[in-house]
Design a protein around this nucleic acid. Sequence first.
DNA 1: CACACATATTAGTGGTTGCTAATATGATGA
DNA 2: TCATCATATTAGCAACCACTAATATGTGTG
Lengths: 106, 106
Amino acid sequence: MIKTDVDLMVKFLRGFSDKTRIQILESIKDQEKTVSEIVEDLNGKQSNISQHLACLKGCGLIVGRQDGKFIKYSLRNQQVRDLLTMFHTVFEEVQTDIACCENHIE
Amino acid sequence: MIKTDVDLMVKFLRGFSDKTRIQILESIKDQEKTVSEIVEDLNGKQSNISQHLACLKGCGLIVGRQDGKFIKYSLRNQQVRDLLTMFHTVFEEVQTDIACCENHIE
DNA sequence: CACACATATTAGTGGTTGCTAATATGATGA
DNA sequence: TCATCATATTAGCAACCACTAATATGTGTG
């Protein structure tokens, strides 16, 4: 770590560390969607999704724009999309080893 | 998400979602190190570091090899290194927006 | 084998975080 | 403006997870 603040970096990365958030990111990866659409996509609760969206927005991973009575969310930029793609790539190659992190750190 | 299991994916990504683990990854990014060296690097407790190492190993992000009485850890491969680099890149560009995730999801 | 050093594991605990339900805010259109 | 729909926020709770201290395993050396 050169100069960037580690704590902030971790907050950024924490955006990726939850199932619901990953699913949201995947859901809007290719097209922007309204909150309701995402809720339906994930079969989740509106308040829960809304909280995660706020988190992802705060982490700089997504952006929202008002569109009539809706708010449409999409990935912040191509880099975030690339990051998601790269996760898949590295993950594929590593998948078999992952049994880790049961409950506590382990 | 195409075919890969989301839960497993999240376990993989959770490897990146903790300050100590990020610091470990950065610490061994360019050269393999023994546990003691990492402990010293981070100014941490041996048992704690050891647990995080186990987690990172389980997540497929690092590998360890016995070397005499020591065990030396290093990043699993170039892809993981690339991922770390890419974090920095995207993070730099996004940094100002990150105030998120205070305590609860927010 | 016994001792010393390096690392791993376990148990217990406190703080963090994601969930739900209820309520509040905000925007649109009659 | 009032009613309605879309989204955000809050409070409370349960589960999770990282931390420390203590102990165990393992490896090399006398």
